[in-house]
Design a protein around this nucleic acid. Sequence first.
DNA 1: CACAAAAAGTTCTATATAGAACTAGTTGAC
DNA 2: GTCAACTAGTTCTATATAGAACTTTTTGTG
Lengths: 244, 244
Amino acid sequence: MAHQDQTISRATDKRLPAYLRLRDDLAARVARGDWAPDVALPSENQLTAETGLSVGTVRKAMQMLVDEGLLERRQGSGTFLRKRAFDATLFRFFAMGTDSKTIPQSRLVARAVTSAPPRVAAVLGTGDCIRIERLRSQSDTVLLAEEIWLPRVRFDGIETMPEANIGPLLYPLYLDRFNVFIASAVDDVSFAPAPAAIAARLGIPADAPAAVIERTAFTADGTAVEWRVAHGPSDRFRYRSRLG
Amino acid sequence: MAHQDQTISRATDKRLPAYLRLRDDLAARVARGDWAPDVALPSENQLTAETGLSVGTVRKAMQMLVDEGLLERRQGSGTFLRKRAFDATLFRFFAMGTDSKTIPQSRLVARAVTSAPPRVAAVLGTGDCIRIERLRSQSDTVLLAEEIWLPRVRFDGIETMPEANIGPLLYPLYLDRFNVFIASAVDDVSFAPAPAAIAARLGIPADAPAAVIERTAFTADGTAVEWRVAHGPSDRFRYRSRLG
DNA sequence: CACAAAAAGTTCTATATAGAACTAGTTGAC
DNA sequence: GTCAACTAGTTCTATATAGAACTTTTTGTG
């Protein structure tokens, strides 16, 4: 029961420091669903007992997961999964319109194994990819047309999953089904006339002004594991970013 | 010589933990230019001697600044400024064009004590404000027309400072002259036709498409101390944001 | 039963210490 | 002069400990 170290056998176990191995173990157990939300994770004392490490080392590992947005610690009560991790950070992407309460609808319009264009392949480190096309709308208005590229080595099978199993948010799915945790991302916002194909999807005239958001998403170790580009009609677009 | 605590007198000194106060002090000294790039900051030992704190506490403060991207530590050799810190955080605002190496030129075109419009007054908590208009250009092309609002209670006198004393970057000035440290900000990017007055400054036709960036900047304790809106020609605009 | 007080359990701050890992410069042997 | 060995200085990992701060549960009192 106690030691999980053996049962997990992380790939990253080349005599890394103890706090990193513990962090990886905890992250893996979180991703595997060992703890439900609103149930406390083992306390510092329990973990020191389980692992044989000291409090400082355990705290260091847990603090990393807090910094990465996976956990949340509440003084006096315990350590928990961070429920709003995804809405708050990765999903603020779309504070479009005025109400950011309702989650946009999401519809997949294409999924296929394809070879990625050079630019995408360079970012992801491979051309062997899966391409997903998705439309996002709110109250029956299309707000965004997305094109998403994923490396097949990590996401094989996502192209045939039943659409019903794919929620409006992809990052939780990545974690649940493919054990990929998106820790950070870089967004690039610019404006350009909409290409005809995209304009049609958005229901705007060809060459009408459109906002373009390019995103590269990374795991905790800095590997790029997703690239996407989204187009939206510029008059309804709003991008919010919290700095510092 | 030793203790800097007195000489700086941070606004955020409501008996915060020691490591946070040290972090703030170090951040302020970095922003003030106390250390040149490629010169090591005081070592852990020196700082423990200066501050009377323990190594662990000093390390905690420095680690925060590393996480925030301000510092860089090299085992065996020392702690240094991270060269691209300013571009990357406060100044990444304008990764316009392709080269982010050259700092844009900056020209003040108006400064006055005025009463702020309701919306701005609500954010800043007062209508008694200073309004600054600024044009930013790169290689003789105007990229951005800014309008900046500051509460007079904190920034009194900035409207009459000689322009020669005002560099291209305002946040270091805020810190140097007014002891205001910008700790975070929220940017809001959208897209709208340029009003005639602004279009004229940008050298584009009236009602031509323009990018609009609204920023609210905060001190460490969460008080809004600056509000600005910037317009730029949409075809040259690019906004980069690092999430997570 | 209601409510206050106490207790137990949790995270958080801070100190002190030891040695490992790494870097850069100095010394010494040849 | 060259190069290896040494040394001093730095950050990094890890442990052990103490009490503060906060939350939740239990206990005791009326």
